[in-house]
Design a protein around this nucleic acid. Structure first.
Lengths: 125, 125
DNA sequence: ACCAATGTACCAATGCGCCGATACATTTGA
DNA sequence: TCAAATGTATCGGCGCATTGGTACATTGGT
């Protein structure tokens, strides 16, 4: 698992961890059935408290990404439907947020689309 | 002034107020030179503390939207350059946020652009 | 000169999110 | 049966943002 936690970032560690693990699962870098590090192990590796890692695991389980059982560890679940619907839902939310800002600023749609295309194709963001 | 504060919203009251006043100025509903309600008056109307309204005014003054002087009140400033740079800055931020989400979800750029176009052109959002 | 209205500046209190630690329940394997 | 490893649940503390209040400075009018 390649995860990096920045303690000074604006987003709290548990959320950084949750986001990164979710991304690893979506991209297939964490295959279905793969076993994640134990809470305590990952906490040691990242220099976090066990409770912090536990929270990330808990929320990912609630979202349907993981399945954790005591004594057995935490593994990646196989429910592509949930992931797909969440993907589309998140894309919709992001697009709506962008549209809302554009509308509030009174910016031309073509300008907004050009700007979006620029940032979507720019590797630096 | 038509402003609505939701005490239960995730964003704190002072930021709701700041955003709404800024939008009123951008859209011209608050003309240049117009005098805003006094801090205490607006606080009474909205059921907020004077300090909360004062903070919104202060940040809007720092952003260049307003000019407040003791004994005289707070008026809308006339500096379109500031508004224009902020408009582009906000558009950039919004586009970057959208691009970041798209990238995290691993969604195709054309799909992302089509989705953005749909929500930009859809009157319902 | 005075007073009222206004904005400014500070400061204590409150609330909330996050973190770290501990105790508990469950499973596996010896 | 026991022990070790694991996830679960809960609790107190810490820090930060926000809030509300109070005192102060400034302006304009009387």
């Amino acid at each position: 698992m390649i995860v990096e936690i920045d303690p000074d970032a604006a987003t709290p560690p548990y959320e950084q961890l949750r986001t990164q693990i979710a991304a690893l699962i979506r991209t297939g870098k964490l295959a279905v059935g793969a076993r994640l590090p134990s809470i305590r192990q990952l906490a040691r590796d990242l220099g976090l408290a066990a409770g912090t890692v536990a929270r990330a695991y808990r929320e990912l389980e609630a979202a349907g990404y993981l399945r954790g059982r005591a004594g057995q560890g935490t593994v990646v679940r196989d429910i592509p439907a949930v992931l797909e619907t969440e993907r589309t839902a998140r894309l919709t939310d992001a697009a709506r947020a962008y549209a809302a800002t554009v509308r509030e600023l009174g910016i031309d749609i073509d300008v907004a689309l050009t700007t979006a295309r620029y940032h979507l194709t720019d590797p630096a963001g």
